[in-house]
Structures are given as C-alpha cells and as structure tokens.
Amino acid sequence: MAELVSALPREARDLQGATAGIVSRLLAGAVDYAVTALLLVALWVGAHGVRFLLRPRTFSWEDIEWPGTVGAFLIVLTLYLAFGWATTGRTVGDQVLGLRVLSSSGGRIHPLVALGRGAFYALVPLGLLWSAVDAHRRSVQDLLLRTTVVYDWTHRVPRGADHA
C-alpha cells in the first residue's frame, strides 16, 4: 500500500526507492565498523566481567592478540550485518544514512543470503567500490547475491523474506 502522507522532507521524497550510491554506502559501512568495534569492546569487557565474577581471585586482563581480535571482529561484523539485513533490512549505519537492503524483488532478504552477504562484506569490503563504477550502483556482493541497496528514510519494514 502506498504511503498516503509522506513525513519526509520534500528534497528526500524523490530519493525514496532509488538505488543508493557509493558515498552513502561507504559512510554506512564506516558507521557499521564503528558499531562493530563498540560491540567488540563491549563483548570483550563483558567477557572479562563474567570471568571476574566467576573467578575474581585469578582475574587479570588478557593481552589483546591481533589475529584473534581481527577474527572476532570479522565474525561479529558478519553476524551484526546479517542480523540487521535479515530483520529490518538495515544496520545502524544504514539507519543513519537512510538506506535499506532489499532482495531483487524488493522484499526483505533471506537470512542465509543476509549471512552470506555479511561474510562477503566482512572479508571483501572492497567489493563495495564496484558500486561506484556499476551503471546501476551494484556492488560485487549485490551482483552475486542479487540484492540491492536503496534510499529509504521511512520506518516501515519491508515484506517477508523471499524463500524462492
């Protein structure tokens, strides 16, 4: 059902539904990286808190090991992105920039597709740069997984995931 009254500013109404460009998506990605970093810190602090509660006497801050931290970051990033895209179609970064990830048919993407997309972005973030070159602003991930990223400033959640 079409939105009867738009609460959007006039200059944004024409944007709605159009494929998002590279700048918005990079900024959304930056926000998501920051959020993931915060999540990681929170997890790290939380894990130490739990350990402190369980064994207060033997508690000590563990040294940060970069390979493990990077791995943990990528895993958290993948899960965080997949959760956002599979539920509302947007992560916090997408929310800030007014973006939404949709399937090729315009619905919410399947959770597995969201998971694959999240992993793809975590491992090959440079694939996003293709959206600057592609005539239809599609990244490598979009091309392979048949997804699309549109401007969507509204709060409505897209219809259910495609189970095709």
Binding site: A7, G21, V23, S24, L27, L97
Partner: peptide, 25 residues
C-alpha cells in the same frame, strides 16, 4: 522521531555526494 534534522542533513548530503560521484564516473 529518530530521524533528526542533523541526520537528515547527513542523508541529504551523502545522497548529493552519491549523485556527484555518479556523474563523475
């Protein structure tokens, strides 16, 4: 709502930047 004016500003500016990059490419 969650969408404050500052966020709207970021969104509008980034969308304009998208357009600019698109034209450039």
């Amino acid at each position: 709502a969650v969408t404050t004016e500052s966020i709207e500003g970021v969104r509008v500016h980034s969308a304009n930047a998208d357009r600019y990059v698109q034209h450039l490419v």
